[in-house]
């Protein structure tokens, strides 16, 4: 039986969340990944998401919000369909990270944390994403793009705009690899 009646999530995600809440020694452990997976589906962590996760994990909404506000990948307002995250940390900076960020700003006509009018792209300057040896690097949603130049960045953006960008499945097989409920 579903853990939550009238879940706001798709049946597949709701079922995964049901399971995710059972695999840890402590239910609350599922909170951080759940927030991220919920954001993947809804686009951001809405009030409804906060409310449902609180119910699912026997927490106060306040507890959920306290955790939500800590992690930089979690957002409470929608981003663009493709969230372009440009790293400007040291390794990327040395190889043109700021140039790339500036190029994206002009190309998309938006600044840090801005969203284009059509909702297709949003832009973020991010801290190190762990692709230092392939700098400068950008993450579009969860996809890495490496060894970029402004020209290559244009091609990446054009691919996404045309619906041809590489795209990892937004939600992994949550809990599929985990042990059975205890």
């Amino acid at each position: 039986m579903a853990a939550v009646a009238n879940s706001i999530f798709t049946p597949a995600t709701a079922a995964r969340f049901d399971k995710l809440a059972t695999i840890y020694p402590l239910k609350r452990s599922a909170l951080v990944p759940m927030l991220l997976y919920a954001q993947d589906e809804v686009g951001y962590v809405s009030d409804e998401v906060v409310a449902e996760l609180a119910v699912r994990l026997d927490l106060l909404e306040l507890d959920v919000r306290g955790v939500l506000s800590y992690y930089s990948m979690l957002r409470t307002v929608p981003a663009g369909k493709y969230n372009v995250q440009v790293c400007t940390n040291i390794s990327c900076m040395l190889r043109g990270g700021f140039e790339l960020l500036d190029h994206c700003k002009h190309k998309l006509g938006i600044g840090h944390k801005g969203v284009t009018a059509d909702g297709l792209f949003s832009l973020e300057e991010v801290e190190c994403i762990g692709a230092c040896c392939w700098a400068p690097a950008v993450q579009v949603n969860y996809d890495f793009h490496e060894n970029l130049t402004p020209a290559k960045m244009d091609a990446v953006l054009a691919d996404y705009a045309a619906g041809k960008g590489k795209n990892e499945p937004p939600s992994p097989s949550i809990g599929s690899a985990a042990p059975e409920a205890k």
């Binding site: 695999i23 840890y24 402590l26 609350r28 452990s29 599922a30 909170l31 951080v32 990944p33 927030l35 991220l36 994990l57 927490l59 306290g66 955790v67 800590y70 992690y71 930089s72 990948m73 979690l74 801290e127 190190c128 690899a177 985990a178 042990p179």
Partner: peptide, 28 residues
């Protein structure tokens, strides 16, 4: 048994005790 887990963006969580806090569903 192995459980795989993801963070949600926080350098501080790389510190061992903060990682445990995060894994317990709290601020890191």
């Amino acid at each position: 048994d192995i459980i795989t887990q993801t963070g949600a963006g926080a350098y501080e969580v790389g510190e061992e005790s903060a990682l445990m806090e995060s894994l317990e569903g709290k601020r890191g």
